[in-house]
Design a protein around this nucleic acid. Sequence first.
DNA 1: TCGAATGACAGCG
DNA 2: CGCTGTCATTCGA
Length: 101
Amino acid sequence: MKKLTFSQKCYKLLKKIPKGKVSTYKWIAEKLNTKAYQAVGNAIHKNKNLMIIPCYKVINNNGCLGGYSKGINKKIKLLKNEGIEIKNNKIDLKKYEWFSG
DNA sequence: TCGAATGACAGCG
DNA sequence: CGCTGTCATTCGA
């Protein structure tokens, strides 16, 4: 097991998100066995892997989109492109949240 | 509604 | 080289 940093682990997990599904910061942080929810956002924010990591699939626990380096508008577009319907800048977690630990 | 907590990175001295 | 502030959040009182 290589010693990956928090960010690295974060990216790996994000890449595991299937198409048409989304994930929350909380979900990721818990999977990483940590409580640094912000660290997840931080790792993605600084994102050096924005091109290989679907950060647009990561949203708040409230179903809010949260944010996106390239712009929240872009995020919405990408999500809709996957078949995810967005209402009032929010996502139906009940329908799209990824449950596959 | 507000503050604390948690992890990595950038900037400053 | 070491410390502080920041970041797209979340939980508890």
